[in-house]
Design a protein around this nucleic acid. Structure first.
Lengths: 348, 348
DNA sequence: GAATCCATCCAAAGCGGTTTGGGTAATGTG
DNA sequence: CACATTACCCAAACCGCTTTGGATGGATTC
C-alpha cells in the first residue's frame, strides 16, 4: 500500500501537521525541516490520498463530463475524443482529474445530479447542446460551475460557453461560393436538433439572401454525419433537373462521401462542382499539405477543448467571475475543392 | 450544498449508524425503519459523498485510463472514443467512475504511479500496447489490477488482456483473397511499433506462405492510419510494373483513401482490384446495408470496451482470480469490394 | 531581568461516511 | 420466573488529510 502522511511524519519524528504544512508550502516551517520533509516524501514516493485530501478541503479537484449514449442511434460523436483530449491536457496540467460518465441518454439528467450530490466534481463540461437545452436550467439550479461546448439558442438564463462562430463561418463559406458565381448551393447539414447545425444553416441562408438567391429546400438536408450520408445525398441531388454546382458540408466525413459520389459521376472536384466542408482538424482526418484537398472552414476541436477547460477552471476557482464566454473564429482554408461556377469566366 | 448522512439521521431522529445500515441493506434494521429511511433519503435526494465513502471503505470505486498524447505526432486514436464509451457503460452500470488522465507521453509512467499512489483508482485500463510494453512491469509492480486492450508480444510476466484475434483475422482475410486467385496482395498496415500491427502482418504472411506466395516488401507499408496515407500508398503501388490486385487495409479510414486512389485510376472496386479492410464498427463509419461497401474483418471496438471493462471489474473485485484474458474473433463480412482476381474464371 | 515577540512545532477537531463493539428491550427457553 | 437469545439501535473509532488554536523556547525589547 501507499505511504500515508502519518507514517511519513512518524518516520521523521514530526507531527502530521508539520509535514502537511511543509509539503503544502506554508510559511511557518523551518527551511531545513521543510527540505528534510520534501526529501523524505520524494524518497518514499509519497502522494497525498486524493479522497482524504478533498474530503478535508471540500474540493473534489475533478471535472465531470457526461456522455449520453442512446441505444437506438449508436452514434458516438467523432469529435468527442479530440475535444476530450484537449480538455484533459488542461485539466491534468492544473492538477484536476477528469471524470467521465457514460450513461443511457434517458439517465443523463440524473447523472448530473448524481455527480453533484455525491460531491464528485467541482464543475461540469456539457457536450452537444441542443436548440433548447434543459441542462442549463438543471446545472444552474444545482449551483455548480459549468461550461457548454457550443451554445443553446433558446435559453435565456445566462451561462458560460465556448463555441465557434458557426453562423459567420458558414456565411463566409457560402459567400465564397457565390463570389465564384455559384447559385445552386446545397447544404449537407448535421442534425438540426443540434444547435450548431441551426447556426450553420442560418449563416448559409444569410449569405444566399445577401446574394439574392432564393433558398431551395430541395438543396438542404440534415442527418447524422456519416460518409454514406454524404454520398447518398449528393448522388440524389445530382439527379435533379437543376443540380447544385456547389456543396457545403458539415464535416470531413460527410465530405468524403460527397467526394466519392462526385467522383463516381465523373465530376471534377473544384472544376465541375465545388465543395466546402467544415473541418474540425481531427488528427486522423488531415486536410493539409501545400494545397489541401478541401476548401474548409477549419477550427481545431482539440484547441476548443483546451480553452473550454481553461474557462471552466477559471469559473471553478472564482465562481463569481460570472458567465464566461468565448467565440472562436474559424479559418477559411482554400483548397482544391472549389473553383468558378461552370460557365463563369475568370474575369466575370 | 448536498445533504449529509448526519443531517438525514438527525432529521429522522436516528443515529448515522442506523441510517447507513438501512441504506446499505444490512439486516440488523427494522423493516419499517428502513422504509422510513429510504423514503426520507429519496425525498432529500441524498447520495453518500463519494470521497467520504471511499475513504472509509478503502475502495476508490473508480477505474483509471491514461491517454498519452505526444506533441509531435498529434494522433488521437479514433477508436478511442468508441472503446471508452463501451467501457464507460460497463463502469457506470456497476457504480464505478471512470477517470481519464491525458498526459504528454513522456509523463505516462508517472501518471500511472501517481494515480495509484494517490489511491485514486482501483484498477487501470491500458491502451495501445506496444510490442514490448514496459507498462506491464510497472503496473504489476504497483500491485494494481489492470487490463490491456490488446496484447504485448514480448512480455513474459502474465497479465490480463482483451484482444481481437488479429493474426487469424488477417490470415483469413488474406486467404480469402488467395482463394479468389489473387497473388499480388498488398498490406497497408498501421504503425508496426504497435502490437496489433505486428500480429496482422504475421497473419498476412502466414496466409501468403500457405498459398505458396513469396512476400514482397514492396507491397507492405506501415504508417499512422489516415485517409491520405491509404490514398498515397495505393497510388504509388499501382505504378509498379507488377501492381497488386488486392489490398489489405488496417482501418476503415485507410480504406477510404484506398478507394479514392483506385477510383481515380478507374479501377473498379471488387472487379479490377479487391480490398479487404479491418472494420472497428465505429458508429460514424458504417459499413453495412444489404451489401456492405467493403469486405471487412469486423469487430466492434465498443463491445471490446464493454468486455474489457467487465474483465477489469472482475479483477478488481477478486484480484486473486488471476490473469483474465479474452480473445475476440472477428467476422469476415463479405461486401462489394472483393472479387475474383483478374484473369480468373469463376470455376477456376 | 522581566515582558514581549517570533519562529517553529504539535494536539485535536473536523471532513462524511463505514464499521466495530456494545447496549436495551422484547422474545424465546427451561 | 430466571436466563439466554434475538432484534434493533447507537456511541465511538477510524479512513488520511487539512486546519484551527494553541504550546514552547529562544530572541528581542525595554
Amino acid at each position: 500500500m501507499s505511504v500515508t502522511l502519518k507514517q511519513l511524519a512518524s518516520s521523521l519524528g514530526l507531527s502530521p501537521t508539520t509535514v502537511s504544512r511543509a509539503l503544502n508550502g506554508f510559511p511557518e516551517v523551518n527551511a531545513a525541516t521543510r527540505k528534510r520533509v520534501q526529501d523524505a516524501a520524494e524518497r518514499a514516493n509519497y502522494r497525498p490520498n486524493t479522497r482524504a485530501r478533498s474530503l478535508a478541503t471540500g474540493r473534489a479537484m475533478a471535472i465531470g463530463h457526461v456522455i449520453p449514449v442512446s441505444t437506438s442511434h449508436e452514434i458516438v460523436n467523432p469529435i468527442f475524443s479530440d475535444f476530450v483530449a484537449g480538455a484533459g491536457e488542461t485539466y491534468s496540467r492544473a492538477g484536476y482529474e477528469m471524470i467521465l460518465r457514460v450513461v443511457p441518454d434517458e439517465d443523463e439528467a440524473r447523472a448530473y445530479q448524481d455527480l453533484v450530490a455525491r460531491g464528485a466534481v467541482d464543475g461540469m463540461m456539457v457536450h452537444g447542446p441542443r436548440l433548447k437545452d434543459t441542462r442549463v436550467e438543471l446545472l444552474a439550479d444545482l449551483g455548480i460551475p459549468f461550461v457548454i461546448h457550443g451554445r443553446t439558442s433558446e435559453v435565456n438564463r445566462p451561462h458560460s460557453w465556448l463555441d465557434i462562430n458557426n453562423q459567420r463561418s458558414f456565411r463566409r463559406a457560402t459567400q465564397f461560393l457565390t463570389d465564384l458565381g455559384h447559385r445552386r448551393i446545397a447544404l449537407i447539414n448535421g442534425l438540426e436538433t443540434l444547435d450548431f447545425a441551426i447556426r450553420r444553416r442560418r449563416g448559409y441562408l444569410d449569405a444566399l439572401a445577401a446574394a439574392g438567391i432564393a433558398m431551395d429546400p430541395a438543396l438542404m438536408r440534415q442527418a447524422e454525419m456519416t460518409e454514406p450520408y454524404g454520398y447518398r445525398v449528393v448522388s440524389d441531388m445530382m439527379q435533379l433537373p437543376d443540380p447544385p454546382t456547389a456543396f457545403l458540408s458539415s464535416s470531413m466525413i460527410v465530405a468524403y462521401g460527397i467526394r466519392r459520389a462526385l467522383s463516381e459521376l465523373g465530376c471534377g472536384l473544384g472544376r465541375d462542382v465545388s465543395v466546402i466542408t467544415h473541418d474540425d482538424d481531427l488528427s486522423y482526418l488531415p486536410n493539409d499539405g501545400d494545397i489541401p484537398m478541401f476548401t474548409a472552414t477549419k477550427s481545431s476541436v482539440r484547441e476548443a477543448g483546451r480553452r473550454a477547460a481553461a474557462l471552466l477552471l477559471r469559473l471553478v476557482e472564482a465562481p463569481q467571475s460570472g458567465p464566461l464566454t468565448e467565440l472562436m473564429e474559424t479559418d477559411l482554408v482554400v483548397g482544391a475543392s472549389t473553383g468558378l461556377a461552370p460557365g463563369q469566366s475568370a474575369g466575370s
